[in-house]
Amino acid sequence: MTQGKTGTELAEPPKKPVTVSINGNAYRADEGECLLTVAERVKIPIPHFCFEQSLEPYGACRLCMVGVVHHGKTVMETACTLRAKEGLTVLTDTPDIVKYRTILFELYLAEAPKSAVVKEMAARYGVTKTRFLRRVDTGDPLGGACILCGLCVRVCNEIMGAGAINFINRGPYTVVNTPFTEPSRDCYGCGACAAVCPTHAVSLEDRGGERILHSWSETKVPLSQCVSCGKYFAPAALEKSVLSRIEPPLRDDLEGLCPACRAKKLAKKEILAATGGDPGDA
């Protein structure tokens, strides 16, 4: 892994309050805070696809462009990579931004013609048609809805540490999938990719004792069955990796239980401990 590429961490420690101006109104922010976060907090809409609080800004979707006013000149920058500082002045809807945003939305409408999310978001900014040729995707595992924001890849690699999926090819040929477009052995089946996907492009389903990740070359991951109630509750590999982070005595107690039964068992244990009973026969 690369070391030290963590702009947020570096900017973090001194949380000095500053005032930034967005569309002519003043707002409080922490120095170094991501401008897109500030805007979201104060409910100023800035469209975006590739930003996720827990990951470094990625700067790929280009939708979050704002105009930064500096010495009377306005320069475009992406809000996700902008850091709040005293006197920062930005405009979210300059004529240039409207012009470029329209084209970007049209490009997205052509790239992911099946995505309802893209359609809705574009419509909110007045873009309902595209003058560009739509992609015809026959049998696209992401259902013609992927806009290559990279969030699934980054969550899978950087947060889950599974590294099951990645980008394949480059330029307009880029897709996301498993290597050799074959079922992955590294996939935990955690579904974080599907949860993070802004366009709901990732398709998966739990069927029988398995989770099937349709979008990822039909990767199948076995689910654990609860030893107490018999329900399938989580991908086995994921359960193992979660349990490995828990202290051994407790781990032995919880192994094989679904979250509901776990809670019951823990509650029982606490009651018994409080009343001085013997937990052994739980």
Binding site: C61, R62, L104, L107, E111, L148, G171, P172
Partner: peptide
């Protein structure tokens, strides 16, 4: 340029493809 685009951002990835079209 279309063939050499890395594919990360939409204006370059998709925009160049449509320019070529």
């Amino acid at each position: 340029a279309t063939g050499e685009s890395c594919g990360k951002c939409v204006p370059c990835r998709e925009g160049l493809r449509h320019t070529l079209i």
